[in-house]
């Protein structure tokens, strides 16, 4: 169970860091920039792929930290990036498992 606790803790720490950083970037009282942030997108993809596909506790923890960083951003930011990250991570998971079973 310790690994799941570490995943949860890293996700929460990443979310808090993401929220603080997001408020520093965007201080406006409304969502001013709804375009796709490429850097966030890369962080999200790396994070979710590691979180979903890594059996190593350290890599999984880093994955959840990165995933939480993007997902935990200020409301209105990081949504598309998170969705892309999760979809790609699921595809990678299915491909890896399909390859193993074949």
């Amino acid at each position: 169970m310790l690994n799941y606790l570490i995943y949860l803790l890293t996700f929460v720490i990443g979310s808090i860091a993401g929220l603080v950083y997001s408020y520093k970037l965007h201080g406006e009282p409304f969502v001013a920039d709804s375009s796709l942030n490429i850097l966030y997108c890369i962080i999200s993809v790396v994070g979710w792929v590691l979180a979903f596909n890594s059996s190593n506790m350290l890599l999984g923890g880093i994955g959840f930290l990165l995933a939480g960083f993007v997902m935990g951003g200020r409301p209105g930011y990081g949504r598309k990036e998170t969705a892309i990250g999760i979809v790609i991570a699921i595809i990678v998971y299915l491909v890896l498992h399909f390859m193993v079973s074949v």
Partner: peptide, 11 residues
């Protein structure tokens, strides 16, 4: 509504 971040309840 945009709603609060998911970690808001924990915070």
């Amino acid at each position: 509504r945009p709603g609060p971040p998911i970690i808001q309840h924990l915070l």
